[in-house]
């Protein structure tokens, strides 16, 4: 029994350089110049999950990303971690894609490479953080999918069991393969890239596809193919203001709750969970 596994990864700006990210006052675009990228942290859990499946059951792990050419470095790192093959989907025409266009492009990229029994992604990206791509991608591919997977077990070539993390516990699902799992950080501890891995990575295949290489509906890709267009983008005021609440303990708590509600905090959902737990 062996599995053909794909892992979708995304290069994101290195958090240790976040202080250098600025918003252009006129164009409203994010300037990332000179900021190195890293593999989106939870995508490393996705790579780890894929490698563990391969090590246990056999098979092949392909990492894929839709990104600028500089993502080659991130793909090499994934190869150094132990992936067998990397695919870079890169084209100016892909630029400005929202989650819909991104997931479409990734789906067409995956179809071009071949058939996959299992696809892993992370739950969300550290920069965009919409969490939409995993489900959308699975929908394009018409396969089962589960998000926020904290643990999973392959039962046989056709089926796996997975735990989806929810606020106060988890739900257990059985999924038919092929399937896509968006894994959470709890799923595993990503391995370190070893020096031997680095040396092997340079000999592994890294394939680049442009828009012309893929079977694409050109109206579905890039900025033009994106139904979501960002409106305004701004740097929030982060000034703190202290405020003293006075009165008896009950009064202070009541005032505090009121202020938290006014600030937009949904206290009801937490209450409901707390009640449900009892």
């Amino acid at each position: 029994m062996s599995f053909n596994i794909a892992v979708c990864i995304k290069p994101v700006p290195d958090p240790s350089h976040y202080d250098k990210i600025t918003i252009h006052p006129v164009n409203k675009t994010i300037t990332r110049e000179g900021i190195p990228t890293i593999i989106n942290p939870v995508d490393k859990n996705a790579i780890e999950a894929a490698l563990q499946v391969k090590e246990k059951w056999g098979g092949k792990v392909t990492v894929i990303t839709m990104a600028p050419p500089s993502a080659e470095e991130n793909l090499r790192e994934a190869l150094a971690m132990g992936a067998d093959e990397a695919v870079l989907l890169t084209d100016r025409a892909f630029a400005g894609a929202d989650t819909w266009a991104t997931s479409y492009t990734l789906a067409q990229g995956l179809k071009k490479i071949g058939h996959f029994d299992l696809i892993f992604t992370g739950t969300e990206s550290a920069d965009g953080a919409t969490s939409q791509v995993p489900a959308q991608l699975a929908q394009w591919l018409k396969i089962a999918h589960l998000w926020n997977v904290q643990q999973f077990k392959i039962t046989n070539k056709e089926e796996l069991q997975a735990q989806m993390k929810i606020e106060n516990g988890y739900i257990e699902y059985a999924l038919k393969l092929p399937a896509l799992l968006a894994v959470s950080r709890e799923c595993n501890k990503p391995r370190y890239t070893t020096i031997m891995g680095v040396m092997k990575a340079k000999k592994k295949p890294l394939i680049t596809y442009t828009a012309d290489d893929l079977d694409l509906n050109k109206d579905f890709i890039g900025l033009k193919g994106s139904p979501t267009q960002p409106g305004d983008i701004y740097t929030p005021e982060l000034g703190r203001k202290g405020q003293e609440l006075t009165g008896e303990v009950e009064e202070i708590v009541a005032q505090l709750i009121q202020k938290l509600r006014a600030a937009g905090l949904n206290l009801e959902s937490w209450n409901a969970c707390a009640v449900g737990r009892e």
Binding site: E77, T193, I195, G197, V198, M199, A201, K202
Partner: peptide, 18 residues
């Protein structure tokens, strides 16, 4: 070389964690 830079990055990640 590119490999040496990658190696440094890999070792750095290990060092920063462990």
């Amino acid at each position: 070389t590119e490999e040496q830079e990658m190696l440094r990055k890999a070792v750095r990640e290990f060092v920063e964690a462990e």
